[in-house]
Nucleic acid binder design. Structure first.
Length: 349
DNA sequence: CTTGCGTTATAAACCACATAGCGTA
DNA sequence: GCTACGCTATGTGGTTTATAACGCA
């Protein structure tokens, strides 16, 4: 197996971490459990379209961080599929990252790029996925800034760098006297792996009470992190339309039915997996850097939460760009002084 | 180097109205 | 607990206006 950054395909060096097990000429994008093979898109399509049995093979996306292992979790904040190791790595890096909402990856069956096996009713699944990738940008962005707490580029005894301005802010915040036992508990488990402020509180006030309430009676069984949760949690995948920031108008009720809404700050329902001890600080750094690069390339475009309102706005009459009363428009149209062009009123002289 | 002016780029404000969400009866 | 109703806040896009940034004399 070629090492990361050393793949040489077609005479050019690529940064693929793992190539397709079949063609060996393209980066793998899915892992087939049945075949125990990593496949590129074309090979996946070819292999799993060969017959009906093959088409039923369940595949999962390859981890977008390490690109070496099957993805186990879908992180909506990072808009990425992550393996258990990377998930633990990334989301244990700081308190904000630990609050990222993640759900177990559902296996893919049928064609990845062609027609789906069965169209989800009302496009529900797609809209949920779309909603899932939306997030509070500020929190997300903030969480990105904290993978390695650095101060003066010094390295601590665990090999972590210090000097991140954001961490300094966190420390400042920490000094405000807030406390959150949940974070303390989480990081007590992780003290062997990461250095964090023990008393740092980031749970919004609004959600703190509820988060604490939810915590009682709900236990995360890390041994089942392979992706079935405790029964009480099985239907409680944490997708909050409030958090998400995008609410497909026609499906909000559907979402709330299948993904019970959790209050802000209940990311703790999915506490980060414990850090794999075999990872070196360099590995951690590399993964975090990879994520930062991906973060940079993302596009943040205006999000339309209510398509119906957009449609109304587009058809609404305007005067100099401003919405106009229909009665006023009607009066104007009744005269010969104005003409309507594309919903906008223009003087006809 | 500072100041003033003109040009260009970016952000904010404005408008009406359908609709979600909440409280009340 | 459920339903109906009224009220309020929100979101939507094209244009204008305000502000910032920049270059040049």
């Amino acid at each position: 197996m070629l090492k990361e950054g050393t793949n040489n395909v077609g005479g050019s060096t690529s940064t693929w971490s793992r190539v397709c097990d079949t063609c060996r000429s393209a980066p793998c994008i899915v892992y087939c459990h049945a075949d125990s093979a990593y496949l590129c898109s074309s090979c996946d399509a070819r292999v799993h379209a060969a017959n009906r049995v093959a088409s039923r093979h369940e595949r999962v996306w390859v981890c977008e961080a390490c690109e070496r292992a099957p993805a186990a979790f879908l992180c909506k904040a990072d808009a990425a599929s992550l393996c258990s190791s990377c998930d633990a790595d990334i989301h244990s890096a700081n308190p904000l990252a630990s609050r990222h909402h993640r759900v177990p990856i559902l296996p893919i069956s049928g064609s990845l790029f062609g027609e789906p096996d069965h169209e989800p009713e009302h496009g529900f699944v797609n809209e949920v996925e779309e909603a899932f990738f939306e997030y509070d940008d500020e929190i997300e962005a903030a969480s990105w800034l904290l993978p390695h707490p650095v101060k003066g580029n010094e390295e601590d005894e665990n090999g972590f760098l210090y000097g991140d301005e954001y961490l300094e802010n966190l420390v400042d915040c920490n000094s405000c006297g807030h406390n959150n036992n949940q974070f303390s508990n989480v990081y007590q488990h992780q003290q062997n792996f990461i250095t964090v402020p023990q008393n740092y509180a980031v749970v919004p006030v609004q959600g703190l009470q509820q988060a604490q309430h939810f915590q009682t009676g709900l236990e995360f069984d890390s041994s089942k992190a392979g992706f079935s949760y405790d029964g009480s949690l099985s239907q409680s995948v944490s997708v909050s339309s409030m958090d998400v920031g995008v609410v497909p108008e026609s499906t909000i009720s559907d979402i709330s039915m299948s993904y019970s809404k959790s209050p802000i700050g209940t990311g703790d329902l999915f506490p980060p997996l414990f850090m794999p001890s075999h990872l070196t600080p360099l590995d951690r750094e590399a993964r975090v850097l990879r994520y930062r690069e991906k973060k940079k390339t993302r596009k943040f475009e205006k999000k339309i939460r209510y398509a119906s309102r957009k449609a109304y706005a587009e058809t609404r009459p305007r005067i100099k760009g401003r919405f106009a009363k229909r009665t006023d428009v009607d009066q104007m149209l009744s005269t010969t002084l104005f003409t309507e062009v594309g919903g906008t009123i223009f003087p006809s002289f």
